[in-house]
């Protein structure tokens, strides 16, 4: 696999505070990479290092196989968490200026801006001043400015904060589009719902250190603990429940005698569910049999708690 960005033991210290401690990441090309962690974990510091706003005390960053250099700036797009626009400047003029700072020439920038303004249905905003726009409107413009120079790597820091659900969806679709067209994306957030939908890979940063990274599906597999949720239709539920609790490790159960409905969850020693299925076969109608997979949020909380408990 090709990696668009690789960090090797990146460390950054502000005074006595260690903001990043030997963080090594491999961010694959053409995918969405989730950079997760609680507030103050060091995500923004890492992102600023990638954008060459600040420099690491030690460690190296490689971009597309080369050591990260100032000229890479024009191939990176960055939407910071703390973002804004010049309030008294007109939207179009401002977008042109920021695009030119990224190295686009004026005409090309204008052409692409017109295209994006049409696409996001904001064509008539060109001559408006930013102070006349709502927060959500300004966010759309910031998004356009971030992607306008068609960077190889896009970095979004909490991209959905400030968006209403409808616009958040529009932006989410655009992010997926960009990924499908070959852009690599780093997606930094502490909100886990969006991670499940978008990210193929994640890294967890906690207290300046990376504590977990990899493919999201692999991580989920590693974190599932063989808990199954079962729903049965059976007449003598109590009786069956007794038998079950003798043979298996039930974690919760409920029997509704009116509807002859028995629901329970159980923990198996391995991921092998043949025994329980064989046991149930013929004894009841199986309505539901699912393995519960932990959400990213649960993994996140569990990992952080484990980490804290170990210290």
């Amino acid at each position: 696999m090709n990696y668009i960005l690789v960090t090797k033991e990146v460390t950054k210290q502000f005074g006595k505070h260690i903001a990043l401690n030997k963080v090594s990441l491999e961010i694959p090309e053409n995918s969405i990479y989730g950079l997760l962690g609680p507030n103050g974990a060091g995500k923004t510091t890492l992102i600023r290092i990638i954008n060459q706003i600040i420099y690491p005390d030690s460690g190296e960053v490689f971009f597309d196989g080369e050591l990260l250099k100032p000229h890479h700036i024009s191939t990176i797009g960055y939407l910071p968490e703390e973002r804004g626009l010049y309030k008294s400047m007109k939207v179009g003029e401002q977008a042109l200026y920021l695009a030119q700072l990224k190295g686009l020439n004026r005409n090309e920038a204008k052409k692409r801006l017109k295209f994006w303004f049409e696409k996001l249905d904001i064509g008539n905003w060109w001559n408006k001043k930013v102070q006349e726009l709502s927060k959500g409107m300004a966010q759309k413009i910031q998004f356009i400015i971030t992607v306008l120079h068609e960077p190889k790597l896009l970095i979004f820091d909490e991209p959905f904060s400030g968006f209403d659900p409808i616009n958040a969806n529009i932006i989410k679709d655009e992010i997926l589009n960009l990924r499908n067209n070959g852009t690599s994306i780093i997606f930094s957030t502490h909100r886990m719902e969006s991670v499940e939908e978008l990210c193929e890979h994640i890294a967890l940063i906690h207290q300046s250190e990376k504590i977990l990274d990899g493919k999201l599906s692999d991580i989920k597999k590693a974190y599932k603990n063989n808990i199954f949720k079962v729903g049965l239709e059976v007449e003598n539920g109590e009786c069956l429940l007794n038998e079950l609790s003798n043979k298996f490790q039930l974690t919760s159960s409920e029997f509704n005698s009116n509807e002859n409905q028995l629901d329970f969850t159980l923990q198996l020693p391995t991921n092998d569910s043949k025994d329980i299925l064989a046991f149930l076969a013929g004894k009841a109608n199986i309505n539901q049999f699912v393995e519960t997979i932990p959400s990213a949020n649960e993994i996140f909380i569990q990992t952080v708690q484990n980490k804290d408990a170990n210290e």
């Binding site: 700036i73 960055y78 804004g84 626009l85 910031q142």
Partner: peptide
């Protein structure tokens, strides 16, 4: 106006 980080990137 929080534009600074956009610019210095």
């Amino acid at each position: 106006s929080r534009i600074i980080e956009v610019i210095i990137s």
